[in-house]
Simulated assay, not measured.
Amino acid sequence: MSSSYDVIGNPSFFGRVWAEDYDSETELDPTPAVDFLAQLAGGRRTLELAIGTGRVGLPLAARGVPVEGVEGSELMAAKLAAKPGGSDVPVTIGDMADVPVSGRFALVYLVFNTIFNLVDVRRQADCFANVARVLEPDGAFVIETYVPAPSHFPDGKRVQALWADAESAAIEVYDVDLAAQRFVSQKVIFTADGIRLKPHAERYSFPGELDLMAERAGLRLAERYESWDRRPFTGSSPGHVSVYRPM
């Protein structure tokens, strides 16, 4: 029997729920990430896992980096392809944990907490192993995630007000399995036309867990920063950008 995690964590389901307004809801400046990744890529073959609508991949390609992508949602990939330059970025539809591509890459990367979209810890480990398989000997695997803070979810629950105006309001409700490090969240949007639900699921991992997955895959932590601007990572950092390289 399928669980809520299996359904909500499916990339096709994610695309059906989020693709239509994904760009407007993630209006994050990609420039710091693109600057960081372009320097690592050095103009060599690069792969973005869960490339989505191309928020990072398209401006990176515009820098002259040969970018390819893996994406689990055909709807998200179609959004990318419809953008200027999008049709020039090869995208493989498939599970990012499988890294279903051929050949070797100088750089593979996953941004915006997306490795946590793999809601099974074994699949997160598979992702590391399959990235190691396609990396050049001097290549790099870069991930960007938040640092989990279970204290934000007393008793595994949280309700958060997002906005309220004359025409709409929204809340986000979290149900967290603290032992399994997984959660289902539901963004509930109220408008005059009715109620819209936007569910999401994640399996969060702490930095040390990710380092262990990397080590078991034959990768080592080479660099870790708090953010794309290479701010030093500390015990109070809310997030991290980590660079892994083959041992």
Results as ranks from 00 to 15, higher is better:
V188M: 11
S237T: 11
A129E: 02
R16L: 07
E202D: 10
R182Q: 11
A129P: 04
Y5I: 06
V173Y: 04
P59W: 08
P59Q: 09
V56D: 02
R220T: 06
A78Y: 03
L49C: 03
K79R: 14
F116W: 13
G57W: 01
S236P: 00
Q39T: 10
R122S: 13
A222R: 09
G54L: 08
V70P: 07
S151H: 09
F183P: 03
F13N: 10
A81G: 01
V56S: 04
P90T: 03
F13Y: 14
R55S: 09
L221T: 01
A149R: 14
L178I: 13
N10W: 06
C127A: 09
R182I: 11
G239A: 12
V17C: 14
P232K: 14
W163P: 04
E226T: 08
I115T: 03
I143P: 00
G208Q: 15
L178A: 14
Y174D: 15
S73T: 02
P11Q: 02
N113M: 09
V89I: 13
E136P: 07
R123V: 06
N130F: 05
A82E: 01
V173P: 07
T46R: 02
T26A: 05
T26H: 15
L40C: 07
Q124L: 03
P90D: 01
I93F: 10
V67G: 03
R44S: 08
E226G: 03
P137W: 13
P148F: 03
A125M: 05
I8K: 02
A179R: 14
A170K: 12
T46L: 09
E209Q: 14
T114F: 02
A166Q: 11
F112Y: 13
R230M: 13
A169F: 14
V159G: 08
F36H: 06
L118G: 05
I195T: 13
M1R: 11
Y204M: 12
S227P: 00
G64D: 07
G85E: 00
F116P: 03
R231G: 13
F190L: 15
D88K: 09
S168L: 07
A81E: 02
V176C: 10
N113K: 09
L162S: 06
A50N: 06
M76Q: 04
V111R: 00
C127R: 05
A125F: 03
R224V: 07
S24Y: 01
F105G: 05
V89K: 00
A125T: 03
M213H: 06
D95A: 15
I189K: 10
R196F: 10
A50H: 05
E68F: 00
V243S: 04
I115R: 02
L58K: 00
K187A: 14
S4V: 08
D155H: 12
V56N: 04
R55G: 03
A106I: 05
R44P: 04
A132P: 08
R196G: 08
G43S: 12
F36L: 11
L135F: 04
F141Q: 01
A81C: 07
D120A: 08
E74N: 11
R220V: 12
D138Y: 04
E144H: 15
G239L: 09
Y244N: 02
Y204A: 08
W228T: 01
K187R: 14
I93L: 15
V131Q: 13
Y22Q: 07
A19N: 06
D211G: 02
S4C: 06
P66S: 05
E226P: 00
R224K: 05
